[in-house]
Design a protein around this nucleic acid. Structure first.
Lengths: 200, 200
DNA sequence: TTCTGATTATTCCAACTGGAGCGTATCCGG
DNA sequence: CCGGATACGCTCCAGTTGGAATAATCAGAA
């Protein structure tokens, strides 16, 4: 039971369709914008493929060269690869992973800056989130229009839903700060001034 | 303008309060459960501290040893550190980072498994999320009872809100799948059977 | 014809991460 | 007073990651 990282999952998904060489995988990732699901860079892609092979989830079909170009190695899934992929999809669906969104940390540190500054930045985030929602809506409209099976793109809906929830929360926070429902701790306020002084 | 990773942010936050040596930082991270905001391990902590020093955001106050224990190096923020920390908090508050939740990927790959399996795993996730919400509520109740300034723990509220949104979405999805509002693509269904055959 | 820039494919290395391991020191029971 | 558990505090290394560098081919412009 070897660990399968996100990028490896994308590779498995593509090989699930048909055998391919790494460069082709790279192309498809771009075409289909699979980059929105994992960070993909050239280096890590080749490493991921190498590791999958070492772990026996994929195997070499053949290595050919056209002219004097670098050799192309084509890979395909092994049956162990098919099984691992399936397990991993199910596991990721069921288990709530521990993740570390940047914004959660910013929120936790928010009290270390001035209230005014904080609200200004939160308003910027709200704006960005609204724009993101707009883009998502357009994408979803396009996909609907194309009459593609919805199951193939429910992840767009998921991402949209989460963005919406974040926007709601941010707007609520800005609100609570403006109305005074939520107050800035006096201690924190003093600490900021103090550090400001020190730096002179 | 050097990049500041999440772990480095936690270090800066603690040094923001008072000078400390790495081991003490480690202790405080545990005490205050700062581990829920970033992945913290011993190794990466020492590296993070070293890098912060190289980048001039923190500096050595003194290195002392008690008895024959290993030397303890105490660090403190430089003024450049104070400034960088502030900028980073604000930047993280305003910018919507590109992140890669595991579940989003699972959702995108869901069509590669059998509908029945998928729904079962989604129900498990919903259950886990509900439990998570329960825990969050207890924590929040405790914090409220302790009369701690709310600004010091709004991140718990944020996390709770996002979990709730995810739960709503998952329940909705299970629903749509059960009522037939969302159908499993026939092509996908066939592909699963096909691979199943192959492996015999 | 030759130069320029895009395309095809991969290698390489510097940086980062995680966690096992190591050498004290102190505390506590028998 | 001796042996084992636990606390202290750090180093080291194997594994990953990101992206620059490389290297050959091909299409089109000058």
């Amino acid at each position: 039971m070897v660990a399968i990282r996100p990028l490896a999952m994308v590779v498995l998904e593509l090989l699930h369709e048909s055998p391919m060489h790494p460069y082709e995988i790279q192309q498809k990732i771009h075409e289909r914008q699979l980059g929105r699901l994992t960070k993909v860079t050239v280096g890590s892609l080749y490493h991921a493929v190498e590791k999958l092979q070492k772990d026996g989830l994929i195997e070499v079909v053949d290595t050919s060269r056209e002219g004097k170009r670098p050799e192309r190695t084509t890979y395909r899934l092994t049956s162990s690869g098919v099984e691992s992929f399936r397990c991993e999809v199910l596991a990721n669906a069921a288990e709530v992973a521990v993740e570390f969104p940047r914004f959660a940390m910013a929120v936790q540190h928010l009290h270390t800056v001035r209230p005014g500054e904080a609200v200004a930045e939160l308003r910027l985030r709200a704006k960005a989130l609204r724009e993101g929602l707009g883009v998502a809506d357009v994408t979803i409209a396009e996909l609907t229009a194309r009459n593609l099976e919805p199951m193939f793109w429910i992840d767009h809906q998921y991402t949209r839903a989460m963005r919406q929830a974040e926007l709601d929360w941010v707007e609520r926070l800005v609100d609570r700060l403006s109305t005074g429902e939520l107050v800035w701790p006096e201690a924190a306020r003093r600490r900021v001034e103090e550090l400001e002084e020190d730096r002179r």
